[in-house]
Design a protein around this nucleic acid. Sequence first.
DNA 1: TCGGGCTTGGG
DNA 2: CCAAGCCCG
Length: 468
Amino acid sequence: MSTAIVWFRRDLRLADHAALTAAVKDYDRIVPLYIDAPEEEGEWSPGAAARWWLHHSLGALDGALGRFHGRLHIGRGASLEVLRDVVAATGASAVYWSRLYEPEALRRDAAIERALTADGVDVAVHRGSLWREPWEVMTRQDQPYKVFTPFWRSLRAQLDDAAPLPVPPSLRCAMVADGLSVDELSLLPGVDWTGGFSEWTPGEAGAADMLEVFGDDAVSAYTEARDLPARHGTSRLSPHLHWGEITPRQVAAGLRAQVAGSRRHVDIEPYLRQLGWREFGHHLLYHFPKTPTENFNPRFDGFHWKDCDAAILRRWQQGRTGIPIVDAGMRELWATGWMHNRVRMLVASLLTKNLRQHWSHGARWFWDTLVDADLANNSLGWQWVAGSGADEAPYFRIFNPVTQSEKFDPDGAYIRRWVPELADVPASRIHAPWEDPAILRRTGYPVPLVDLKSSREDALAAYRRTRA
DNA sequence: TCGGGCTTGGG
DNA sequence: CCAAGCCCG
């Protein structure tokens, strides 16, 4: 009986899984393995919200394997040592995995591949959960892209409609003794603040359900609804994509199938383009691995950020800035582990421009509180908003949270939902309640942390000083 | 994946 | 008076 280990990391699914498919084809039985080794991801081990997701997603994967009379074998410790132990315990002669793209993971995986190969174990590394590998989308001069639109043009031209891989029809698992249970990994927070996370269903089945719901009632209105945070106009697939519970190829195929079955003409390109941003983040992180901590644009190394102000940061984190759309977003984040993308841009703009706090403070908070926290996307997003990023986002692109709020939450439904003390304020006042001091007195809602107009001018002045 | 200031043109 | 369009940073 030939045996192969399939080492699951952020590919917590059975369908469209190239490594699993190949292992099942090449070997009689497989050992599905997960290893808890957060320290191997350096300073970017999963944050609290992400660990909550991981806990439930591992449970879901274990359950899915149960339908094949298998279990997810869970180990803890140095990945190489655990892999060697499982090889010894099962007589496995190969290890299959899906590629990760973060710098720390790439280094680790390369070292493990060398060590296992030296042990005489076959290592098979397959595509991860991207449409194309980061080095497969390059400019004519064979350089990585730095601007989204040409990147997307190039990637889009490479995409085909090939069907995703099915779940391997016959999957025989080898049993291994001495595994840990998911609970023993202690991934859930000590003080449970995840009550509002109940709307999520981590795992492959939850991802498929989410896609179906999105396809059914949102695709048709996506282009308009995408920007309205009060509606669930976005797909909300980001955490599922991050954990590899679903792939971009599956998302595209699912949307295409649903569109084909609909009588209305529906354009899914805008949504595919959103997936393109996710792909672009991974492309940038792969080619420019320092972006999580260093300015992509070195001009920003000389920018005069304000000193880190713990009190200001705390009010931003708690959703007590006095700017309703921002506070709604920050409270949604805390309650649900997620925030609407339009609002992410607004809260990030306020922190990095009006408050002039370094983007890394925001990135760290998002890292700990987002269930979809993804190093590539988080780094891309924060640097994009801060203006220090790759895409030519001019620094003067400072969002006005009031006009944005009026535009994208016109009746204030999103604000009312997440900032309940403003629920009764009329739509004409809800975006800028400070303009009527009586409302602040009546509701107890705070005065804004900054004056939007003067802080905007200060930020622009600071930027001009940087260039000089 | 912008805002603000300005012009234009309709009321 | 105001909305829409345009330009510039």
